[in-house]
């Protein structure tokens, strides 16, 4: 049985995560004026998150400017001013910032301990089989129940595809942890499944986090 209070206290003791923004591709780097350690950052805003977060950098490649925005709120810890104005390769560290965990993130952390996680058996790209994929797209993952031995994934490595069966307790898919066309490392969670006997506990987790976690502005 998960001790939600203990887990919450542990997260409260260390409520930040530090993230690094790297260059998604090559290009000439411009860091915006005024950005410096200590600068407060905001994430996407608006009803549909249509307004991007704070501008962190711009990459100019083949006459196309790509703005790199902060994906969530936080505070700049470090930025790579040495590369200002130069051509950077992909994967270069540009900005580091620290971020106070949001309710959703705390909930995700706790649910990862409460749900039954089905882990990636190999480093590969994963897809749901077409029937499951359609259901999830139309009604969301919680509309899909899975049971032990059911073929619900396609595992794709080196352009070869193989069906993959879920193993674990029967339940609804409560969380999906992989993205389309992205590699998942061995042992990373693919889905979180909530068995019927855990539903009450999971609902309790959601309520507790909603009530007890105070987000910082």
């Amino acid at each position: 049985m998960l001790d939600i209070s203990a887990v919450l206290e542990k997260i409260k003791a260390s409520p930040y995560k530090e993230l690094t923004i790297t260059s998604p591709h090559t290009g000439v780097l411009t860091l915006p004026e005024g950005l410096a350690p200590g600068t407060q950052l905001h994430g996407p805003m608006g009803t549909w998150k249509e307004k991007p977060g704070s501008l962190l950098a711009t990459l100019d490649r083949e006459r196309n400017e790509k703005n790199i925005h902060c994906p969530e709120k936080g505070e700049v810890v470090w930025l790579n001013t040495e590369l200002q104005g130069s051509f950077v390769e992909a994967g270069v560290e540009l900005v580091r910032y620290r971020h106070f965990l949001s309710k959703e993130e705390v909930l995700e952390q706790i649910l990862k301990q409460a749900l039954h996680l089905y882990l990636a058996p190999e480093r590969a790209k994963y897809y749901f089989v077409p029937a499951v994929d359609i259901k999830i797209k139309v009604s969301g993952p919680k509309a899909v129940s899975v049971r032990d031995g059911e073929e619900i994934f396609i595992m794709s490595r080196m352009k070869r595809e193989a069906p993959l069966r879920y193993s674990g307790p029967e339940g609804v898919i409560y969380a999906v942890y992989f993205n389309h066309n992205q590699n998942v490392d061995t042992g990373q969670a693919l889905i979180g499944v909530c068995p019927p006997d855990l539903i009450t506990q999971v609902e309790d987790v959601v309520t507790r986090v909603q009530m007890e976690w105070k987000e910082r502005e």
């Binding site: 591709h25 290009g27 196309n64 994967g91």
Partner: peptide, 19 residues
Amino acid sequence: LYRVSSYHDANELLAVADD
């Protein structure tokens, strides 16, 4: 030698070619 995001990205290849 340059690190790129993908071998499939034409913009990436041409940006490297220019630099």
